[in-house]
């Protein structure tokens, strides 16, 4: 705990002192007001986009207060206008790399909790940028400006997930009850696979399946050390209860055989009886009452 705390302090001091030592904003000095043409000028040439694909979107708010509307994203446009619509004098996102275009979005959206770790995310590392999922001007999903609604958007790259959620035993993603972003923060987390966690660092599974969280007096230790996925496949499974294998006894014997940590293999005759371990060991996620998880 001490180590972790001091690491955090060092990172904080590094960031704060660097900012204090250099007051000049290194993101690029704010452009002079004269470099901006004004969104009403953009409207004169780009009326179709403006009226149909900007005015009704959340980004329309950038016109308020000190915002620059279109030029908040596309950069100052005075030279673009002066050049008669010179495309080289304005930021065109189609010409930017994913990394470059994402940095422009994160200028405004980077401070929000959801987007804070995008730079170190698996999506970013695999050249998936903001504009792969969001479209400020051509969104099919209006609230978050998504190219397509979830989960179809996610399925367009993660095709295996479509098949997993179509399996008979599945989390209700296709039904709309659960969304991909309930369990994954698509903008990145500190965990692998961009999986969220509970505030205390536990698996996000416990947000819904709270009765499995414990803590229990008698812990089924791999549940806590290896995680829920040591026995379950969370997207969907061909087996009931999302189990990795079709028969519970095999799942148990894979671990509870010599030289298991403890206990060793069963003394019961599974060939004639006891063919269902969980008939007796019912509280398999952990128990407050029995060390063998019988209740």
């Amino acid at each position: 705990m001490k180590t972790a705390f001091w690491i955090f302090v060092v990172v904080s001091l590094l960031s704060a002192s660097a900012g204090a030592a250099n007051e000049q904003k290194e993101h690029g000095n704010p452009a002079d007001a004269a470099q901006y043409a004004g969104s009403d000028v953009c409207l004169t040439c780009h009326e179709d986009v403006y009226r149909k694909q900007f005015e009704g979107t959340p980004h329309f708010q950038t016109l308020k207060k000190d915002g620059h509307g279109c030029e908040s994203c596309h950069g100052p446009g005075a030279e673009h206008v002066a050049g008669g619509g010179d495309k080289t004098k304005i930021i065109r996102f189609a010409n930017l790399s994913r990394s470059e275009s994402s940095r422009r979005c994160l200028e405004c959206h980077g401070q929000a909790h959801e987007q804070q770790r995008f730079g170190s995310s698996a999506h970013s590392g695999n050249d998936v940028g903001c504009l792969d999922c969001h479209s400020p001007h051509h969104a099919q999903e209006e609230r978050k400006l998504l190219v397509k609604p979830q989960p179809e958007l996610c399925y367009s790259c993660h095709a295996s997930a479509r098949a997993e959620f179509a399996r008979p035993y599945h989390h209700r993603v296709n039904e709309g009850l659960v969304t991909c972003s309930d369990c994954h923060n698509v903008h990145g987390t500190a965990a692998l696979r961009q999986v969220r966690s509970t505030p205390g660092g536990d698996a996000i599974c416990y947000k819904c399946h709270a009765e499995k969280q414990g803590p229990f007096i008698y812990e089924h230790m791999p549940v806590k050390t290896e995680g829920c996925m040591s026995c379950h496949t969370p997207h969907g499974s061909t087996n009931p209860r999302f189990l990795r294998v079709s028969q519970v006894n095999l799942l148990c014997l894979q671990c509870h055989s010599a030289p298991a940590l403890s206990p060793l293999g069963p003394a019961h005759n599974q060939s004639q009886k006891y063919q269902a371990c969980t008939m007796c060991h019912a509280a398999i996620h952990g128990s407050n009452l029995n060390a063998a998880f019988m209740k």
Binding site: V11, L14, S15, A18, G19, H27, H113, Q116, R117
Partner: peptide, 14 residues
């Protein structure tokens, strides 16, 4: 938690 990218080339989260 902290996030800072005051410098153009450096982004810090913690």
């Amino acid at each position: 938690s902290l996030r800072g990218d005051y410098f153009r080339r450096l982004e810090l989260t913690g």
